[in-house]
Amino acid sequence: MQTKIETFIRVFIDEGGYREVLVGLRNTLLIAVLGLLIGIVIGTVIAAIRVMPKYKRLPRVLDKICQVYVGFFRGTPMVVQLLLFWYVLLPLMGVNLPALSIGNFSIGPEVWASIIVFGLNSGAYISEIMRGGILSVDYGQTEGGRSVGLSYGTTMMKIVIPQAVKNILPTMGNEFITLIKETSVVSFIGATDLYKTFNDMGSNTYEFMVPYLVMGMIYIVLVSVIALGIKLMERRLARSDRNH
């Protein structure tokens, strides 16, 4: 054990392995955070479409399209979506994602691809969460908004969705944590995330025990911090339930 730890310290600190880990950590967070943001936008739009009254033709058609979208992204593993996007869709469309670098801060095309796929994927899950959230808001809120002349869209944006978001915040937090954990699959298309940096360290030294142990601890700390952040946010949003 002694030598295992020494080996790790040598690679991690003396040989600058921590720098790689920081890049991996940054990518992991970037993919999860941007993925979540994209997912929230997509999910909210899909949810608003899916709870629309369906007398007219257009909402029905849009609803069908959304169903197919959600079905696909919830029905296949994230790795499969990632591989299909990177090795099938992008080459077929002839698209080369750009690499962005500002100073020594650079984000490669694999990371962009991961962000997009994570966004599309979480959009599907969040749409279901959001739909549940919207349905949990009393229909009287919608009627109140419509009765003073606000449109369906305005009523949703200003009245229903803010309340839905409050109701689903804990579930959203779980979705974010899921995304953080799922980022460990992006190495399948060559993106550097937290998992990949520790795995590389292990491969280089033929010594996996300590790197994986440290990696596990970092994930736990990360997730705990996020869980705490969500708690604080919930407390802030509970304002409208209290006297003050």
């Binding site: 009287g140 809120q141 109140g144 908004g145 409050k166 409208s240």
Partner: peptide, 13 residues
């Protein structure tokens, strides 16, 4: 204008 049995004030405002 419409006034409802259950008031329907906007709870988030």
């Amino acid at each position: 204008g419409m006034v409802f049995q259950q008031f329907n004030l906007f709870n988030n405002m």
